[in-house]
Amino acid sequence: MFRHSTRALVSGLCALAVAAPAAPALAAPAGGPPSPAPHTASRALHAQTLADLTTTMKGEAYAHAAYSLFAAEADRLGVPAVAKLFRGTAQTELNEHLREAAALSGTVGSSAANLRQAISGETYEHQVMYRRFAEQARADNDLEAAKLFSEIAADEGRHRDAFRAALMVVTTGRGTVPAPPKADVVAVPAGLPKVRSARTRANLDTALHGEALAHAKYMLFATHARQTGNAALARLWEGTAEIELREHLAGEAVLAGLVRTTRENLRKAITGEHNEATTVYPGFARRATAVGDTIAARYFRDTAADESRHAAAFQRALDQLR
């Protein structure tokens, strides 16, 4: 009952976020893309709570992506019960936890605001992040990673240009929203990392989290576009989201050795869920409580309880494999 009351409050915040006008952009933090401007739902939240909600969204988006890949590996190995568990948990992370965090933080604004937010992120990845990662990978003799990072940098530039064209349509009412791009789907088999240096491994981890979050946010933006009658923009968001997840993230996952045996995948999931349940989200809840962000604090506590249940379910699945 307590959980449902929190969701009702978050649903109201979602409605506010959809109706909110665009706010001016915030200053860019050092070493990263500009932060999205807060929308109506997030104006009263403390800066630390907003930062914790952003961290939450990154973690939940990454869990959704990783668990989806783990489910495919379990299917391949003929362990349908484990595949079903991973797939169901992945959907919870994306469609409940991340969506609630996005509503609380005011991630979704007007279509123009959403496009500006995406343009900022794609520009940073195109001009700065992936180019730097490629240069560092070449210096470390991780040539396969350097090639992938360079290819993704080019893709992100094309995404930025498509979003700029869509923004012109949205703001002027003239022209046509670009057609959605098509993903070149990459299979992700189980395997060891294909990179040598610790720096490239760290960059792959950053990239994986970024692509997972981009996919999740673009799907939220697509829902908003469809709800406000812009089907062409929704299709652009969805097509780009598919590339971020099934092409960019998947290619990075292969190099990072993200997917291992199903036992190893379950152990990794247990460790992550336990950490979120006992350390990450309780800490976020305490910080939110201390600054009076009671709805966010309740969300963090509820999510911690969910993650504890996930950890227990993964542990039971692992025990049954032995």
Score class of each variant (00 low, 15 high):
A311V: 02
S150F: 00
T54K: 02
P33K: 06
A305G: 09
L50P: 01
T206F: 00
K268E: 13
A74F: 02
F163L: 04
A241D: 04
A37I: 06
Q227C: 06
E238V: 14
A66L: 08
D319P: 06
V170R: 05
L321F: 02
G88M: 02
L50Q: 07
S111I: 11
Y130V: 15
A313S: 04
L26N: 09
D184Y: 01
K194A: 06
G251R: 03
R160W: 01
I295Q: 06
R99M: 05
S11I: 13
A90H: 04
R316W: 01
R196L: 10
S111C: 07
Q91T: 11
Q48R: 12
D161A: 08
G88Q: 01
A41Q: 08
A81E: 07
L258M: 07
A311E: 07
R263D: 11
T89H: 00
Q48P: 02
A162T: 09
A241G: 12
H310C: 00
H215L: 12
K194F: 00
T54L: 07
D306E: 04
A165M: 04
V185A: 03
F314T: 10
V280R: 12
R316K: 09
A212R: 14
A232G: 14
G210F: 01
F284N: 11
R246D: 03
T40S: 10
R131F: 05
L45M: 07
F133Y: 15
F314P: 09
E252V: 03
H4L: 15
Q227L: 09
A103C: 14
S35D: 02
E100N: 06
T171W: 00
Q48S: 09
A137E: 13
A296G: 04
A23D: 03
L85R: 05
A137S: 13
F70M: 09
Q136T: 15
R164T: 09
A190K: 08
Y124K: 14
L192F: 01
L26I: 06
W237R: 15
A231W: 14
A81L: 05
L245P: 09
I295M: 06
R267F: 02
V79W: 01
G173P: 02
A222C: 13
L321H: 05
E276Y: 09
F133G: 15
S11R: 12
A154I: 09
A74D: 04
L208T: 13
Y130W: 13
A47G: 07
H224K: 14
T262C: 03
